[in-house]
Computed example of a mutant assay.
Amino acid sequence: MLKFQETAKCGPTAIPVYPPTVIARRYVLQQKLGSGSFGTVYLVSDKKAKHGEELKVLKEISVGELNPNESVQASMEAQLLSTLNHPAIVRFHESFMEQGTFCIITEYCEGRDLDYKIQEYKEAGKIFPDNQIVEWFIQLLLGVDYMHERRILHRDLKSKNIFLKNNLPKIGDFGVSRLLMGSCELATTLTGTPYYMSPEALKHQGCDAKSDIWSLACILYEMCCMDHAFSGSNFLSVVLNIVEGNTPSLPDRYPRELNIIMSRMLNKSPSLRPSAAEILKAPYVEERLQQLMYKHPEATLEDKRNSACQKEAAHAVNAIKITEGRRYKENNKRAKELRSQNFGSVSAHVLQIRM
């Protein structure tokens, strides 16, 4: 791990002593932000950045502590992030090795994450304005559509992985993302927070793009209601509510069209859920998308048919195959073993997932 010296601590953050710690002769450590999927996350200042763009996020991953599956995922994270360029996705800058530690540098979002914002409003007894919710939802849809067109799953969409910059949402924390290697290869590793997990993920039936759609619907509900779409007194009750419970509805104060869209996204059958592209074509969403284009043109003018980006994604797949072939096979073998298990055996596994 990187040897950062720390002194005065305030909550989860730490202030470095002087002289300041510099990573890769470029990034000056500012403070600890928290823990990510595989390691620790820091706020750094980029000495080579343009004025006003100095602050960035450094995510450190100790390679020696990763098992083969995690090593594959860490490598994939850097590879796929380098192919993504969209206003609704946290921007990737670079990755490198430093003192036996794998480091990823990404965009810094000063507004923290959506979960923090929701809790802040909830404690103050406030709710988000309707137009704000719809704008954020559409921007997230655009980001998810962009990913899915490039055959990329996020697999851990939740409010804690949505970051706010200049009040615009950005999808981040791709630590458990996967490139879809083929139409028959479904991601099966059980991961993430149960509140946002799809029924098929909880039943170990595999995840595809429609699982991300389910998670996005849960985020929409949470933005509207300041609470989880599926809750329970304990972990298993949450799981049973997701797998067997009724589909929740939005309060009457929200447009009927928005509730219909959310209900379709929460269909327990993945094949019956709409894709992000189909939702964007719904009259209610399409009308508001046009309005959003005038307000935030930089967030909606992405060419979704950019073949160059698709080629880059393909190159990333090839790079991973070459450098991580052996470990990737181990990962696939493990996934097949998990796929063969029934829901009864899954229940024992899901108890180990943190709420």
Results as ranks from 00 to 15, higher is better:
Glu120Asn: 12
Glu120Tyr: 11
Tyr121Ala: 14
Ala124Gln: 15
Ala124Cys: 06
Lys126His: 13
Lys126Tyr: 13
Ile127Arg: 09
Ile127Gly: 00
Phe128Pro: 00
Gln132Lys: 14
Ile133Thr: 06
Glu135Pro: 01
Glu135Val: 08
Glu135Gly: 08
Leu140Glu: 02
Leu140Gly: 05
Asp145Met: 08
Tyr146Trp: 11
Met147Tyr: 10
Met147Pro: 08
His148Met: 07
His148Arg: 04
Glu149Asp: 10
Glu149Pro: 00
Arg150Ser: 10
Arg150Ala: 11
Arg151Gln: 13
Ile152Glu: 01
Leu153Thr: 06
Arg155Leu: 04
Arg155Lys: 13
Arg155Trp: 03
Asp156Gly: 05
Asp156Lys: 09
Asp156Cys: 08
Leu157Asn: 05
Lys160Val: 00
Phe163Ala: 03
Leu164Gly: 08
Leu164Lys: 07
Lys165Arg: 15
Asn167Val: 07
Pro169Gly: 10
Gly172Pro: 07
Phe174His: 01
Arg178Gly: 00
Arg178Thr: 11
Leu179Met: 14
Leu180Pro: 00
Leu180Arg: 05
Cys184Met: 06
Glu185Phe: 01
Ala187Glu: 03
Thr188Glu: 02
Thr188His: 03
Leu190Arg: 04
Thr191Ser: 08
Thr191Gly: 01
Thr193Cys: 14
Pro194Trp: 00
Tyr196Gln: 05
Pro199Lys: 13
Pro199Trp: 11
Leu202Ser: 07
His204Cys: 12
His204Ser: 11
His204Arg: 15
Gln205Trp: 07
Asp208Ala: 07
Ala209Ser: 15
Ala209Asn: 12
Lys210Gln: 15
Lys210Ile: 03
Ser211Leu: 08
Ser211Phe: 08
Asp212His: 10
Ile213Gly: 09
Ile213Gln: 14
Ile213Phe: 13
Trp214Leu: 04
Trp214Met: 05
Trp214Cys: 02
Leu216Asn: 07
Ala217Met: 14
Leu220Ile: 06
Tyr221Asn: 09
Tyr221Ser: 07
Tyr221Phe: 15
Met223Val: 10
Cys225His: 05
Asp227Trp: 01
Asp227Cys: 11
His228Cys: 12
Ala229Cys: 07
Ser231Thr: 15
Ser233Glu: 14
Ser233Met: 08
Asn234Gln: 07
Phe235Ala: 08
Leu236Trp: 08
Leu240Lys: 09
